[in-house]
């Protein structure tokens, strides 16, 4: 089995601040981390590898510094890490991203053998669309199962698998067949920590880099900013909700009574039906 995991390095969101003067993001010096959900995809691929034997290829499209994220996956047990990186890929929206990642998955198949399963995260913390996974599946015509919280069964011989999808109102048990793309939620597993040999291997490992020149059939009008139909026309910081916090003081009984009185004095009385 050959499993590809798509991971993305994202800015550590708790470190992102907004410049109050220019209303732009201050990204400088913001540390990068692997998108939270994607590590659950890596873990699931490694569990399948541990159980049935599989080759695990981790792919990311991003700047050269994203090689750190790949090394982290190598330290956990992934076989190869591919960095798809080129200035021409920059500024991609989900449509252009899915095109490049689909091309990279085809190339990974040519290099290491047919790809049976692809894992992607439910969504990223910066793009936050959840569209890239379905986009890749559509591009290369794989079955698509999103929001998977459990893989109940895999038959490595027939390629049949049963998964549980986590939906708003319940859980759906679905059966399908490889080749398949799965997007994962955090309930799926608990990511492991790197082992010492893993860390040693990662320290020596240099991720493979593919640039536009490595893709024979890449249509350059379909990548990067140029290949992205969506344009950000404007960004703004929403007016901070004007709150003048009312700090209630007094004994416990007093503050409790004051709070109840105050809340009953608002429109909540009607909207919550507190007759």
């Amino acid at each position: 089995m050959h499993i590809v995991v798509c991971i993305k390095q994202v800015p550590d969101s708790k470190e992102i601040k907004i410049d109050p003067k220019t209303n732009t993001l201050m990204r400088q010096g913001v540390p990068a981390v692997v998108n939270y959900y994607d590590m659950h995809g890596v873990e699931e691929a490694l569990r399948i590898k541990d159980k049935y034997g599989a080759r695990v290829t981790v792919i990311t499209m991003g700047p050269p510094s994203a090689d750190k994220a790949l090394k982290q996956c190598i330290s956990l047990g992934a076989d190869e890490g591919v960095l798809v990186s080129d200035r021409a890929f920059a500024g991609a929206d989900t449509l252009a991203t899915s095109y490049v990642l689909a091309s990279a998955i085809y190339k990974a198949a040519d290099t290491w053998g047919p790809v049976d399963m692809i894992f992607a995260g439910k969504q990223t913390s910066d793009g936050d669309t959840g569209q890239v996974g379905p986009g890749i599946a559509c591009r290369i015509d794989y079955e698509q199962l999103t929001y998977v919280q459990q893989i109940e069964d895999i038959n490595p011989d027939t390629g049949e698998l049963i998964v549980h999808r986590h939906l708003e109102d319940g859980v759906e048990r679905v059966k399908t067949r490889t080749p398949v793309l799965i997007t994962v939620v955090t309930e799926l597993n608990t990511p492991r920590r790197a082992s010492l040999p893993g860390m040693l291997r990662a320290a020596r490992y240099t991720p493979i880099v593919w640039t536009t020149n490595d893709f024979e059939e890449l249509d350059r009008s379909k990548i990067g900013l140029r290949g992205s139909p969506t344009i950000v026309s404007k960004t703004w910081v929403p007016e901070p909700k004007h709150v003048s916090t009312d700090m209630l003081t007094g004994t416990g009984n007093e503050v409790a009574a004051t709070l109840v009185e105050n809340l009953f004095g608002t429109e909540l009385k009607h909207s919550l039906g507190w007759a």
């Binding site: 929206d93 989900t94 449509l95 899915s98 936050d128 669309t129 959840g130 569209q131 890239v132 996974g133 379905p134 986009g135 599946a137 559509c138 591009r139 698509q144 999103t146 929001y147 999808r165 986590h166 939906l167 708003e168 992205s228 139909p229 969506t230």
Partner: peptide
């Protein structure tokens, strides 16, 4: 929703067209 995002992501890619999430 989960279903809406699953479907919209596939459709927009197929057409293809731009898709704004959420």
């Amino acid at each position: 929703t989960y279903t809406g995002r699953d479907l919209a992501g596939a459709i927009a890619t197929h057409l293809p067209t731009g898709l704004t999430a959420d």
